[in-house]
Amino acid sequence: MDLAIEVKDLSYSYPDGFLALDRVSLKVILNERVAILGPNGAGKSTLLMLISGLLKPSKGSIHILGRPIDENIHKIRSEIGIVFQDPDDQLFCPTLWEDVTFGPLNMGLSEDEVVKRGKEALRMVGLDGYEERAPHHLSAGEKKKAAIATVLVMKPKILILDEPTANLDPKGKKELVKIIDNLHKNQKITLIIATHDMDFIPLIADRAYILNKRIIAEGNLEDIFSDSDMMMKAGLDLPTVTRLFEFINEFMGSDKVKPIPLTIEQALQEIKRLLKNPQ
């Protein structure tokens, strides 16, 4: 099993002295899909910036694809793509096209390749035809998609998404799930996603870390979500469906439904089963 990311005893304090992360350790295997969950101010964004080599750890170490992160940082940055929480931070050019080609041009790719990749990335997020638009005239959801395109265009091996569903409408979310699925299956990309959107997590992740300044829990989604006390304590919710079925279980006074479904699809299966077989 090859490790994509290995974080050991990582601590980080901001220049003003605020300790945002305290001895965090985590491992992500190649081609894995991992969610980082935590309440506001838990340090998710900070952790993702550290993993992308944009901030320097105060203590501890980070290895990316087996190499320490501070060794050949430029190579590593071209292998990791990070989509920032606020797309306004990520779109800094006068036109969307310039924003999308910013990364590939810095990678020193040939012009034809840059143009090809740029078009492809815009098509993937459904923004083809938006090349000449100015980022500040895009809607919030379009900005988010544009930010994702500026990263996809670099074809990273590891894709880091910070709150990717914020401001996306239901259709946008579905498309995002499709894009992510596709990248994961066909291009063997490794995914790390920080989010609050609990209904979205089961669709795009297999495993999760619960973070609140330090790692509180870690495990498969089923295990994490079945420990609702721990989730409560961490200030987090369960997916809507999961909550519903916990309710049903409680109501029926047994662990009738096991494992508890996480997504609508799983829930439908479960309901069908229950209806067919009421006992």
């Binding site: 944009l54 430029h74 800094f92 910013f102 810095n106 990678m107």
Partner: peptide, 12 residues
């Protein structure tokens, strides 16, 4: 943050 975003995409 914009600087970080630029660096993440290879700004030098």
């Amino acid at each position: 943050r914009v600087y970080l975003a630029m660096m993440a995409r290879g700004y030098n």
